[in-house]
Design a protein around this nucleic acid. Structure first.
Length: 221
DNA sequence: CCAGACGTTGTT
DNA sequence: GTCTGG
DNA sequence: CCAGACGTTGTT
DNA sequence: GTCTGG
């Protein structure tokens, strides 16, 4: 699955990688992004691609309160088009979530070892997501999102049985954001086929409050 | 029809 | 054990 | 994902 | 809002 990730690249890199229009809100490097926090999300708008903060953990429009979002941090690729909580978003509200790495916890006996997964060169990449809007009782609109998961590739299969969907470049970003063909969209939601790096990191990364880059301790393998 | 859930992962 | 908050 | 709380009434 | 279970 995907329960934590990092986003450490600067905005000029993001702007170029995702062909964004000029306006970017003020983003800081983050090394330990947790569910429930606001994360940068890229969507298609009539004026082009925009990036804006959304709460991680999708809140369906019919929800009575925001609590349900904590259970909706991931959506399975195999069923995202059918589940009542996700199907509308899958049809009409898809997004890209920029990341430079994500964590998976490998179970080694009783111990859970956090692993950081990155792409070669610490390159920024796009997680496939869906988003929703929810009208709060006070009249404000809450935007939220979920990260889609799939089976692990060869780098992850020894670590965990799910991994987030990574879209492989502009040739996949554009159809994911704008195409209206459920079969093709489904086809994009497959395990990433490119190279990856996998490093054990200190268990201090477990704290959701800790946004300190000093926590990452790459090992040689 | 109404009532109640609406999710994933992992563990047993 | 299960839920909430981060 | 992990960490930390998990409850009510009434009194200060 | 929409689906599932009874």
């Amino acid at each position: 699955m995907c329960g934590r990730f990092i986003m450490t690249v600067d905005f000029e890199m993001i702007k170029a990688a995702f062909r964004l229009r000029a306006e970017l809100y003020d983003l800081q490097p983050r090394y330990n992004i947790a569910p429930g926090q606001d994360i940068p999300v890229i969507t298609n708008t009539p004026g082009g691609r925009e990036i804006s903060p959304m709460r991680w953990g999708l809140i369906p429009h019919w929800a009575k309160d925001t609590k349900i979002g904590y259970k909706m941090i991931n959506a399975r690729a195999e069923t995202v088009g059918e589940k009542p909580a996700f199907k509308g978003a899958f049809r009409r509200r898809r997004c890209l979530i920029p990341a430079s790495g994500f964590y998976e916890w490998k179970k080694e006996g009783k111990v859970k070892q956090p692993m950081l997964i990155t792409l070669p060169g610490e390159k920024v990449f796009a997680l496939a997501g869906i988003w929703e809007h929810w009208l709060a009782p006070d009249g404000s609109m809450v935007y939220s999102c979920s990260i889609i998961t799939t089976k692990p590739n060869k780098y992850l299969e020894g670590i965990h049985n799910r991994m987030p969907v990574i879209l492989a470049g502009e040739q996949e970003y554009e159809p994911w954001l704008s195409l209206d063909d459920p079969l093709f969209l489904q086809h994009l939601l497959r395990p990433y086929e490119g190279d990856m790096s996998v490093y054990p990191v200190t268990t201090r990364v477990n704290s959701p409050l800790d946004d300190d880059p000093g926590l990452i301790e790459p090992h040689d393998d």
